[in-house]
Design a protein around this nucleic acid. Structure first.
Lengths: 124, 124
DNA sequence: TCGCTATATGCATTCAATTGCATATAGTAC
DNA sequence: GTACTATATGCAATTGAATGCATATAGCGA
């Protein structure tokens, strides 16, 4: 069916036509980050961020895996990546945030590798 | 300002995240068509089509010029064209419609050129 | 002028997305 | 087990977009 192509495109554009969601995927194309990181960047309440992450996750655009207390999300849809490239230009550099509490962000070298005993599990 | 890039992108995606508007711009990238043509293709009431055309026109995505009773619209935003190419693939062939009343559509050869005395005027 | 057609506009209503917030869950450390 | 942190979920309230429709305007021909 040809109508599906339209529906699919409308759905995709709809996901990106939202200021917070757009900024989330733009942040995510720089690399994997945790929720608290996005919270710090977007300056929005945590439940609000989580809700938008859910929308993107259920649409199959992003994927998250838990690592201890933290959940790290990344972009898994290359079409979205192309659309961002076209509209926003190339992705910026990843920025470690002092505002973010997670080990990856406050720059402790050893915390960049998996702590022994912890296992990365998919979020769904 | 960097925020403007986001705003601009959100605006663009918003325009395309609408089934009727998306189909209009997809139709328009095949070539210039009149309003009645879009009416026939989309099977929607004329005021409804005109409203969506206005949204696209005021956003600077399309442009219309009047030719006698008929107004012909065309796509003038190449970024939109690229986004459509990415999401919908290449544009289809232009299709003349028997359902459409305008001279261009019911295939009278001489009507494809401007009738003497008529002047193309911009719509705004 | 009037009558007709194509297109545009204004406005009220309906509907869906957005947002805020309270609370639930998952995991860690003790 | 309890206490604490990060993240997720559910739901009500609100806002804004989408839609329908009546009417206005523009141009043509008689």
């Amino acid at each position: 069916m040809d109508k599906d192509r339209y529906r699919q495109a409308v759905r995709l554009f709809g996901l990106l036509s939202h200021p917070v969601r757009l900024r989330i995927v733009d942040e995510l194309r720089r690399g994997e980050v945790c929720v608290c990181h996005l919270q710090a960047v977007l300056k929005r309440p945590q439940p609000y961020i989580s809700q938008q992450l859910r929308v993107l996750r259920e649409a199959g655009v992003i994927e998250g895996h838990r690592q201890g207390l933290y959940v790290y999300y990344r972009l898994i849809d290359e079409q979205v990546e192309k659309l961002l490239l076209e509209t926003l230009g190339p992705a910026g550099e990843p920025i470690p945030l002092p505002l973010c509490a997670c080990p990856r962000c406050h720059g402790e070298a050893e915390s960049l590798s998996l702590p022994s005993g912890s296992v990365a599990t998919e979020v769904r």
